[in-house]
Design a protein around this nucleic acid. Structure first.
Length: 312
RNA sequence: CGCGGGGUAGAGCAGAUGGCAGCUCGCCAGGCCCAUAACCUGGAGGUCGUGGGUUCAAGUCCCACCCCCGCAA
């Protein structure tokens, strides 16, 4: 008898985990819960979440609750529990807070895949937070869900080195994959009581908030190193940008320059051209060299290309 | 029809009031130098997004359409 799972997830990060569960004979994904379709993109076209598309592909019944903290929602999930005797919920990047009365439904509890080495980087933007903080290591944690955010006892973790130039998007994809790989065996071991959940050391916890576009605005008073990490972390979401002559310029790729550069009267937050390099002075008197950028209304381009058409 | 910017040489940009299509980079050929993302000389490369319209004359003015992008979500 396979373990019966209800999967809660929405974004791309959820996909490898859901896929791992579907393909593993030891599990049966009885149902999927995902967020409602959202109008997305420049033309506000209604778009189905990736998890919904995967559920449809494998003919798994799915629910898209508008609100989850309602009696109706509870009733539906409660009925599901009655009819199918669900073993556990698996929550991966669902995007909504699940109330306690629903968390209490499945027999063996609720398991969450989180993209950081808990207790570090609790919260919604854990992957970006790791790179922005200049961490050498990142990882995934599989944990029990409790009432507080990313607070539950840990069942398993996997670590990985963050390469020098890795972007948030790249790390995100790797961690999603790692999460899926670690999930299935961990679940089975947990169900068979081979794992003792380890409480987190809450004193060491750090938190990150959900990111919005505005969070990508560069504060040039920070150090070049911090800014370079932020640019790397926030690529591709939410992106980093600054105002230049009334327009936004996104920065997609940049380096903190460690050598000293001879420039007369450099001023902070101004674009500076040195030879064929595009530089900006940061708060710690070091420079950021912009390698790839995107002016508002334009496609992305290299700094050399930008300089070919813009006099500074 | 949520708001806005834009499509001109391989790339990035200029092209008031319509009047021979230009700049920077790249590319090709040659030169120079111990050497260079250096410099010098010469050269190729454009149906100006598409289709109509106005005009002696349209990249430029009018209309329609296609495509790209920023914001917002």
């Amino acid at each position: 008898m396979p373990y019966k799972i209800v999967f809660f997830g929405t974004s791309e990060f959820s996909i490898p985990s859901l896929q791992a569960l579907i393909q593993d004979q030891r599990f049966e994904v009885t149902a999927v819960v995902t967020k409602p379709d959202m109008p997305i993109g420049r033309h506000q076209t209604m778009t189905e979440p990736p998890v919904k598309l995967l559920a449809k592909k494998f003919n798994i019944p799915f629910f898209q609750f508008q609100k989850i903290k309602t009696p109706d929602t509870y009733q539906i999930l409660s009925d599901l529990q009655q009819n199918h005797d669900i073993d556990a919920y698996v929550v991966v990047s669902y995007g909504k807070i699940i109330p306690q009365n629903i968390l209490d439904l499945p027999k063996k509890g609720v398991i969450n895949v989180h993209g950081s080495l808990l207790p570090k980087h609790r919260g919604a933007s854990c992957v970006q937070a790791a790179i922005a903080a200049g961490d050498q290591q990142a990882g995934v944690s599989i944990m029990l869900l409790d009432a507080e955010m990313d607070h539950g006892a840990i069942l398993a973790q996997a670590e990985t080195k963050i390469p020098e130039a890795e972007t948030g998007g790249e790390l995100h994809d790797r961690l999603a994959q790692m999460g899926g790989e670690l999930l299935t065996d961990t679940l089975v071991n947990y169900f068979e009581n081979k794992i003792t959940p380890q409480p987190q050391n809450h004193a060491l916890a750090t938190y990150c908030k959900i990111l919005k576009r505005e969070d990508g605005q560069i504060d040039w008073n920070k150090s070049a190193k911090e800014i370079a990490n932020l640019i790397r972390a926030y690529n591709p979401w939410p992106g980093t940008w600054f105002e230049w002559q009334g327009k936004r310029i996104k920065i997609l790729k940049a380096l903190a320059v460690d050598q000293s550069i001879n420039i007369q009267q450099p001023s902070i937050r101004q674009l500076i051209q040195d030879q064929k390099r595009l530089l900006i002075l940061c708060g710690d008197q070091n420079f950021i060299e912009i390698l790839e950028l995107q002016p508002e209304g334009k496609k992305t381009m290299s700094s050399q290309t930008y300089l070919a058409g813009h006099k500074i």
